[in-house]
Design a protein around this nucleic acid. Structure first.
Length: 323
DNA sequence: AAGTCACGCAACCGCTCGCGC
DNA sequence: GGCGCGAGCGGTTGCGTGACT
């Protein structure tokens, strides 16, 4: 099986390339073209194997390589393509001009994969998985500081575009039970049920493209963003049932006077209008920046994801029902 | 300031694929 | 069809660097 490594021959250098070697390789290819990679190093006067030369050229020296941070659009493209193609990095790279398969692979393994895991999404199947969901941070928060001011409804509502409704039920229940522990308002059970119903009955937009937030009147529009076959347009990790109309659901929640009253009373420092500060007329986009809501930095992307789950689960909550 | 740890990325390795003989 | 070879792909490794103690 498998031939012996081409670099085992004596005298061939391994490891990082020097600027001089880069220059020699670049000059040679610019003059003669790559031609036969196996004979190239000898012709160019490099003490490297052809494989190493090819890798150095294709992954680093090629003039059309785009370096630097991946844009949101590129990142979303990678995620969507990966949901369709799997670890076919070269195929993914073919649709990202200037990016190499190696670069995409590294970026996936070091950034995207971890982020998906934090979001409770299986990076292999792209399906939501409660067992991957980072409950530990939530539990730490719950144990350490049960305080309604930690309530992040805006994040919760934004999360509805991403999360399985079961997550929402869990989060809503956890939040309200946490509030109950502190303030013990009346009629809380019915409020929890009401909130859970709202979360569970969010309007499903199975035909809505993932990269374009659509108001109800726009819901018949076709996907006008990512140029892929329709069957590939919806990332499988979101699933058709998780395409929720966050705007619609915000309205539903705002129309729950008991919940609004309860939340306003729970903490005078929290204005329900302020936590729902996302203007209804400008819904949070579910497009190329949908996951990160126009955040521009890695930290902001993570912050958005973590804010989504900035909830508290009291010890009294039995989450086994959700598992 | 020194040591340790975690992370990101370039490069390597093993394997498969495709082509010519 | 079998074999050898070159090219390419995906997984893995190891080094450099910055953060943290």
């Amino acid at each position: 099986m498998g031939r012996a490594p081409c670099c085992n021959k004596n005298g061939l250098k391994k490891g990082p390339w020097t600027p001089e070697e880069d220059l020699i390789l670049t000059n040679y290819i610019n003059t003669h073209g790559p031609g036969n990679w196996r004979t190239l190093p000898k012709n160019a006067g490099l003490q490297r194997c052809g494989k190493s030369c090819r890798l150095r050229w294709t992954n680093y020296l090629r003039p059309d390589i785009k370096r630097g941070r991946f844009s949101f659009e590129e990142e979303e493209t990678i995620i969507q393509l990966h949901s369709v193609l799997g670890n076919k990095w070269s195929a993914i790279a073919a649709r990202l001009p200037g990016r190499t398969d190696n670069e995409i692979k590294n970026y996936w393994n070091t950034h995207i994969r971890k982020r998906l895991l934090r979001m409770g999404i299986d990076p292999v199947t792209h399906a939501p998985r409660l067992d991957l969901f980072d409950m530990s941070s939530i539990l730490r928060s719950a144990i350490g500081n049960i305080n309604p001011s930690f309530l992040n409804l805006q994040g919760l509502l934004g999360a509805q575009a991403l999360m399985n409704p079961e997550f929402l039920k869990l989060a809503a229940t956890a939040t309200l039970l946490s509030l109950k522990n502190d303030h013990n308002p009346s009629n809380l059970v019915s409020q929890v049920e009401q909130f859970n119903n709202n979360a569970g009955n969010c309007q499903v937009q199975s035909q809505v493209a993932p990269n374009q937030f659509q108001t109800p009147t726009q819901s018949n529009n076709v996907n006008n963003g990512f140029s892929m076959a329709p069957e590939n347009s919806i990332p499988s990790y979101l699933g058709e049932h998780t395409y929720l109309n966050a705007q619609q659901n915000q309205v539903d929640l705002l129309q729950d006077p008991e919940l609004v009253h309860f939340l306003n009373n729970a903490n005078q420092n929290i204005s329900y209008e302020s936590v729902l500060s996302t203007p209804l007329s400008t819904p949070t986009p579910l497009n190329s920046s949908s996951t990160y809501v126009n955040s521009s930095t890695e930290e902001e992307r993570d912050t958005y994801c973590s804010d989504v789950f900035k909830l508290e689960i009291p010890e009294s909550l039995d989450i086994s029902d959700f598992l």
